[in-house]
Design a protein around this nucleic acid. Structure first.
Lengths: 362, 362
DNA sequence: GATATAAATGTTAACGGTTACATTTGTAAT
DNA sequence: ATTACAAATGTAACCGTTAACATTTATATC
């Protein structure tokens, strides 16, 4: 009999949660019969069944699911490692995961890791200590030198969103390379030839893949790749703002900027506008992700739409497949993207006009 | 002995998690000694201690915390009911909760309720079924007719962010009325007399309180309250955009718009700018929340800054107080706010100029 | 070295369900 | 009425850990 202390109307009261034994006693049957009534009602006679249900009602019995989980060894919890839950994109992914998990009777244990691998390890331990059945990692980890490497292979996990090729677990990802290529081709088709790129975090495979896609497009178009056009960033608004400053100061100004996410693009746009440039007339700006705000920028942002919620749903269903043993291989799932052209990208300004801009900046 | 199925390098393998008994056997001691070595090392002799630790190492033993939780009756889980995790503000709140919870060894069970009270009940049941120790509700609920009413009083809970006065559990909230009043007074001080308001969801107490603060300021300034200046909204970008359209169409246009959150303000600003109005020269726009994007709007948004993370941290610490029995009353905690004046609000246009605007709109 | 006492360790019963197996009760066929 | 078999119910072991209590071993004191 478990005694819990509650607060009722500003007043602490001791309340006793009835257990299955008390229900059995009340109904005049054995505990097994109560359990059966609740789990497989067809296996108990209608007469007893109603008597038990009555006892359940009367006592206010709620099975202690912690006991059930303990005995069954299945917790029906999934740990999710998120670099930052406050990130708009991740928030949507989590939303999708939550939906899919709830449908299958699973709950999410959310970890805001802040990129701290100690936090990640702590939460990964929840699987090893039987507090959760599996884990979803939204950050890419290196299977050779990363802390997650120990976990990976030793526990049921799925890696989503940010993924390295070498990871030997199921993955759910976008073809970032193809998406970046599509965006770059869009800018090329508008006549831009000097296309700057504001990158994501240096270590992120997203950055590498999107950069590769950008180079693919340039190469196909016969345009020389110039790494003076690459500017560092970290997916934040302020990084975009700052990088835009560097772009403005650069000798040969580019006419278009491809940002690796929408926040960066929004930060960059603000800087350009404050510097007196018009978007897209003087400079085109493109983003990545299509967060809700992208459509409400000034001008609305051209970007790559990712079905974030689907990422989440797919990651969960993959993990459940692993848990149920349905997955023996490690599927690499590719989620489709969409190029969304809005008003932040436009034809490249011709050279006569752009010279005027150079004067302003110098 | 618990058998779990793992996926190792694309290959399913059955692995046996050692339990405390095997460790004891390996070390040649009793299970109690192993337990003591891990829980209170000082109570066991150095010699045995090292022998046990060695056995733990050798067997790769990890205590089954599900068993511990079951036995102790404490899950160290907290359920959090969030209307939408994808909301930028809530994401920050969750972030703060997660931090505080992790510090105290608690994990968060996140529920994306979508305002569905069935989902809320399902998750509230997790407390009643001993899967979690307490609950944090980020939505206001009516203690008289709401589904949460049953839960409230019967389980340890805290209500944060959106709160009704009558709720007899600890609450963490902003003085929304005072904040709205401060913002309205800011607009009044700029010479605005016709201040429109784009509201939040009708049912939300946030809407009512902020409206009350708005009226307070008007009354103090001797300005007549006119509900033709109130426009419906629901905290989304698109609602702000739409409401702005209604404002543009209204007969006597207001010179300032106070939006009940930043998304609404950003949506409204976009509409105004697309209609050819300048912000703030022609119309001032103010928001509420100070989300990250607020500083990167064009123009940067004047708003009320809420320390969202602190909301989360405080809610968790309140709940832990309830759980530990430290709280016997139901504290009503008020989190401070800040009026952040940026460039989206400015002096009211004088009538000679504003007549020009009216022509444009008609 | 005997004794008292403290420290270290062992034994075992919980915790609250589920389920294999044993037993009782009911039903149908002879 | 007896038997055979199915349906309903009961009994008790088990999941992994902790902690109260029992027992053994070490240490100090005389």
């Amino acid at each position: 009999m478990l005694t819990v202390t509650f607060v009722i109307h500003s007043l602490a009261v001791a309340y006793t949660m009835p257990n299955i034994r008390e229900v059995a006693e009340y109904a005049g049957v054995s505990v097994a019969t109560v359990s059966r009534t609740l789990q497989q009602p067809e296996r108990v006679s209608p007469k007893t069944r109603s008597r038990v249900m009555e006892a359940v009602q009367a006592t206010g019995y709620k099975p202690n699911l912690m006991a059930v989980k303990f005995r069954s060894g299945k917790t029906h919890n999934l740990v999710v490692l998120v670099p930052t839950v406050a990130n708009v994109f991740f928030a949507r992914v989590i939303s999708g995961m939550q939906e899919a998990a709830a449908e299958q009777g699973y709950a999410l244990l959310l970890a805001n890791t802040m990129g701290d691998s100690r936090v990640e390890e702590d939460y990964a331990k929840m699987v090893q200590t039987s507090q959760a059945d599996g884990l979803i990692q939204l950050r890419a980890f290196n299977p050779f030198d990363d802390a997650m490497a120990n976990a990976q292979g030793l526990l049921p996990m799925v890696n989503a969103c940010e993924v390295l090729d070498a990871v030997p677990c199921p993955t759910v990802t976008l073809d970032n390379r193809a998406a970046a290529r599509a965006m770059t081709e869009h800018l090329l088709s508008l006549g831009h030839t000097r296309i700057a790129m504001i990158k994501g975090p240096q270590a992120s495979p997203l950055t590498r893949e999107r950069l590769a896609g950008y180079r693919d497009a340039l190469t196909s178009a016969g345009i020389c790749y110039d790494d003076a056009l690459l500017f560092p960033g970290d997916f934040t608004l302020s990084a975009g703002y700052q990088a835009a400053g560097s772009i403005l100061k650069s000798r040969e100004r580019s006419t278009a900027v491809f940002c690796e996410n929408d926040e960066t693009a929004m930060g960059a746009m603000q800087h350009f506008k404050q510097a007196g440039l018009r978007v897209p007339e003087d400079i085109s700006v493109a983003g990545f992700d299509d967060i809700a705000f992208a459509a409400y920028c000034d001008p609305p942002l051209t970007t790559i739409a990712q079905p974030a919620e689907e990422f989440g749903r797919t990651a969960v269903s993959q993990l459940l497949d692993v848990l149920s043993g349905r997955t023996r291989r490690a599927p690499k799932i590719i989620i489709p993207f969409d190029l969304v052209v809005r008003q932040s990208t436009g034809p490249a300004p011709d050279t006569t006009h752009s010279s005027h801009i150079k004067e302003v900046a110098s």
